[in-house]
Design a protein around this nucleic acid. Structure first.
Length: 582
RNA sequence: GGUCCCGUGGUGUAGCGGUUAUCACGUCUGCCUGUCACGCAGAAGAUCGCGAGUUCAAUUCUCGUCGGGACCGCCA
């Protein structure tokens, strides 16, 4: 490091090589231990902590913890019994000669830096700069920087070009709620912040850029979740010209395999990752983002109960989840699961346990014929000690989703989510359209820009709900990390797809003017995806909250505790953008 | 918009229809020459989120409200 008036080395890097030398260090006072006659300071900078010692207790009068200081002193070896193995600099200490306070901490600290992670998040965020001095919190942000640096290297190694797209852009009619920015120059008009660089990256493909990527900020005005921040988040956005689905899979697999192997010691799925069609995922796992660490699969039993005496199961969708060696669980264990089922809107959950003589026990048993039992044993591979849970609903989708929630809950309660494994899969073949009961017409299930499988033929000849899209998600341990698709670059197919979703050509032309026009001038087939960077970091860090990966996150309710945003603005500012607040 | 959970010194917490509101950390004062989340002795610091109701009495129970969080809706 260059010596300047503040320092000639880092605290955390002082070691045996420095013995006998004078050092000048700057940093924060992490702790003061005054023994009367001898006094110790722990000085911290980003590289670590070093102990300073002095026999002159007047020297440090009035010092407060977390003040910044500049200190000169001489490094000496500690007595061997005084080594501190927890510090990198723990075999030496700095004998203080001169100290200067650079920035005094005047107030009582709102919380202890070293234990800030235990503090209420609202207060941590209000004093985020103090929270970020905590090594664990700080390291997450450094880690983020390293991962993003590595991602850029990966993209470069695959010959992707990084291109910035606009932040002030146009509101998009599909998708999430936009953040809007009023225009001063155009009365009554608004910019919007991009939900994703989707249109621009497709236009880049039309422009002849072969492989594009961007570490892209994305803005969505939708409520937060534990794995979804409010407001703004970052994606590694990429797109490739003249590419097929499989080309994108290979890029995604390489990125995840490399990043997760480099930045974690956990076991990562072998490539190629398992590819699971959407319909299979919904049937087997009751989710389009299955946690494959849980070895349970959902089984369809609807046909067995088609004509059953048990009315709640008759003629509806019935799904089963079998768990072996569970019959010995206590009544209260099962009751808790029933309570969980009720909490997700199920009337309860039926189950049978398999006795030592292969007979069944449980409230539903008496409704089962011998034939039913035989079929259940075969279909679900029931053994002595197995328990078979039933999920039934008139609505197939509802039954699937509830079965998925029960599967996940069983996985949690039975400790099936191995914490040392990253289990990846690719969910593909999403349906292009779904019927909207309220709107009474088909709508795009996911992404209006995806290419329908089978192209125009499918759109013309299939029921819309039978049309699949070249659309895919990468999922890891039950968390969706990627969404992507082969895009629809054919204007005729696009017109037809939008027509099915209830848009006439004029609307398409109007709402997606840029793409509509650009595609008239020779568009390459293209495909791409976007990786949720914050989510990926959350998985790599084992953090339960996505906000731990971000330097200055908003609260879940969308406030910035540091800046106080959102704030009111002045009358003058409002006038300039032609806005009147009611 | 809905459901559930939480709100007690600066921080994290205990607690209960009647307490001098518990403990730890931090802060301040004093003592201490080898600690390292030092130790010891003492002190200050709380309108128990806010409002209303029930009650002789509410931090405690009820309702409302505000704030926070998790989940559902939403997130092409």
């Amino acid at each position: 490091m260059r010596e300047n008036k503040y320092r000639n080395c880092y605290c955390g890097e002082i070691n045996n090589d420095f013995i006998g030398k004078d050092v000048k260090i700057s940093g924060w006072i992490e702790n003061i231990r005054d023994h009367g006659g001898v006094i110790f300071l722990d000085i911290r900078d980003e590289k670590g902590v070093v102990q300073v010692v002095s026999n002159d207790d007047t020297m440090f009068n009035g010092l407060t913890r977390e003040s910044t200081i500049c200190l000169t002193g001489n490094v000496r070896k500690r007595e061997e019994e005084d080594f501190n193995a927890r510090l990198k600099s723990g075999e030496v200490e700095v004998v203080a000669k001169k100290i200067e306070v650079l920035g005094k901490a005047r107030n009582v600290l709102p919380f202890e830096v070293m234990t800030s992670k235990e503090v209420n998040e609202e207060i941590r965020l209000k004093y985020r700069y103090l929270d970020l001095r905590n090594k664990k919190v700080h390291d997450n942000i450094i880690f983020r920087s390293e991962v993003i640096k590595f991602l850029r290297q990966e993209m470069e190694s695959m010959n992707f070009t990084e291109i910035q797209t606009p932040i002030l852009t146009a509101s998009s009619p599909e998708g999430a709620r936009d953040f809007v920015v009023p225009s001063r120059l155009f009365h009554g008009k608004f910019y919007a912040l991009p939900q994703a660089p989707q249109i621009f990256k497709q236009l880049l493909m039309v422009s002849g850029f072969d492989k594009y990527f961007q570490v892209a900020p994305c803005f969505r005005d939708e409520d937060a979740r534990a794995d979804r921040v409010y407001g703004e988040f970052y994606q590694l956005d990429l797109e490739m010209a003249f590419a097929e689905e499989e080309d994108v899979y290979l890029v995604g697999e390489k990125i995840f395999k490399d990043v997760f192997s480099k930045f974690s010691n956990k076991k990562v799925s072998q490539t190629p990752f398992r590819r699971i069609p959407y319909r299979e995922a919904m049937l087997k796992y009751g989710s389009d983002k299955p946690d494959l660490r849980i070895p349970l699969e959902i089984i369809d039993l609807s046909d067995i109960f088609k004509n059953t005496e048990f009315k709640p199961f008759r003629g509806v969708t019935v799904r089963g989840i079998k768990v072996d060696d569970l019959a010995s669980k206590s009544n209260s264990w099962f009751n808790e699961l029933v309570d969980f089922a009720k909490s997700i809107g199920m009337p309860g959950i039926g189950y049978i346990t398999v006795q030592d003589d292969m007979s069944f026990k449980g409230p539903i048993d008496k409704f089962l014929t011998e034939e039913d039992k035989k079929l259940l044993i075969e279909r679900s591979d029931l053994k002595i000690g197995s328990v078979l849970f039933f999920i039934a609903d008139r609505n197939e989708e509802q039954a699937s989703k509830q079965a998925g929630q029960i599967r996940l809950e069983l996985g949690k309660r039975l400790d099936m989510q191995d914490p040392n494994v990253y289990e990846f899969c690719i969910i593909n073949d999403f349906p292009m359209f779904e019927y909207d009961v309220e709107e009474k017409h088909y709508i795009f299930t996911h992404n209006p820009f995806s290419m329908p499988q089978g192209g125009m033929d499918s759109l013309l000849n299939k029921e819309p709900n039978q049309v699949l899209a070249y659309q895919y998600d990468f999922v890891c341990n039950g968390i969706e990390l990627v969404s992507g698709a082969v895009r629809n670059h054919d204007i005729e197919i696009m017109k037809k797809a939008f027509e099915i979703a209830g848009y006439d050509e004029e609307t398409l032309k109007d709402k997606f003017k840029s793409l509509y026009t650009a595609f008239q001038y020779g568009a390459p087939p293209h495909a791409g995806m976007a990786i949720g960077i914050d989510r990926m970091l959350m998985l790599l860090n084992d953090e339960a909250s996505i906000r731990e990966t971000i330097a200055f996150p908003m609260t879940a309710s969308g406030q910035d505790m540091l800046m106080g945003s959102p704030t009111e603005i002045t009358e003058q500012q409002l006038r300039e953008v032609h806005i009147k607040v009611r």
